[in-house]
Simulated scan of single mutants.
Amino acid sequence: MEHADGAGENPKMGPLEVGNGERRAWHRLTDAEKAALTACGYVRTWQPGEILAMQGSPPSSMFVIQQGWVKITATNYRGDNAPLAARGPAEIVGELSPISGLPRTATIQAIDEVRALVIPRDRLRAVLRQKPRISEELLRTAAIRLQQSDRLRLESGGPDFPQRLAAVLLELALQYDPDWEAASEVVLYETQEDLASFARVSRSTLIRGMDELKKLGVVQTARHRVTIIRPDILRDLAAGRPAH
């Protein structure tokens, strides 16, 4: 397994895979700000399942996802491991610990093959002093994600399971595609166990709920993947309205 803080060979940031919306942190930076971060980092690749950063480890670097997807999870005092989010191309992850100087509070793991710009902590802090607007954008990113987390936690507490599941899927869709709005499909790279954890139900209950959504033509499922194909119906279900 590769470790996130090893030496890299490619200092250049390649083309990002998708999206240029303002909710993706990298795209909110100016060309000069991107160049400054790129110049002080290096590019690394991780294979599916490999760890970019481990919960509790030193805050040694920040990552800019260039290609692929990562899953962010955390383990509580009881040893329960829970999914927190998934992040993809043009997203910045692991940025808070290098700024705070505290050990990492979550694990970042590759879902598929991931390529990322790795920016060591000391170099990052130097760039932030030179270009303080980057700090503003990192703070904005943290605020957006806190709002997403609050919404997901709120929706996962609803009493009606079909409605709750629909709302949780909608909130996850906005994590995967921050600019997702209308009728376009969106793919969630989540296991059944992770979805059950998000929805706060057993795996068997989650499977029954997903089967109902499949019968309605709302989602398609594959191994570690859920595709939302009828977001309009999903929104009706999340709002407590009958599917039409």
Rank of each mutant, 00 (worst) to 15 (best):
I233P: 01
Q130L: 11
E33V: 03
V168G: 00
A116Y: 04
P48S: 10
A106M: 07
M1Y: 09
Q66P: 02
G19P: 00
G209P: 01
A239D: 12
A106T: 08
V187C: 09
H27Y: 14
S100F: 07
L96Y: 08
M210Q: 06
M54C: 09
E181F: 10
A53V: 06
N20P: 01
P89K: 07
V218P: 00
E91K: 11
L117P: 02
R140W: 10
D211H: 11
Q109F: 03
A35F: 08
E185I: 01
T38I: 08
T73E: 15
L29P: 04
A196M: 07
R115P: 00
L29Y: 06
D177H: 07
M210F: 10
L174R: 15
G19S: 14
P159H: 12
A182C: 07
Y77A: 15
V114A: 06
A199T: 09
D122H: 10
R115D: 01
G209E: 02
D194H: 13
Q55I: 04
L170W: 00
L169Q: 02
G49H: 08
P58M: 12
K131S: 08
E50M: 12
L29M: 14
S197N: 09
T105D: 13
G157S: 12
G158R: 14
R225E: 13
A39V: 07
R230G: 02
L124K: 01
P15E: 14
R203Q: 15
L146E: 10
L169S: 02
I108K: 04
S97V: 06
P162L: 07
M1L: 14
R28P: 05
V93F: 10
A243W: 04
E17T: 12
L213F: 05
S197Q: 11
W26Y: 13
A238F: 05
P59N: 07
R200A: 14
E22D: 13
M62S: 05
P120D: 04
V114Q: 06
R145T: 03
I144E: 13
S100N: 12
S156D: 08
A173L: 01
E155N: 02
G21I: 06
D5C: 14
V43S: 14
R129Y: 07
E155Q: 07
E95S: 15
P162R: 02
G68Q: 10
L102I: 06
Q220A: 09
Q175P: 00
G209Y: 02
G88I: 05
E95I: 01
T73R: 14
L84D: 08
R121L: 02
L237N: 04
K12I: 13
P98N: 12
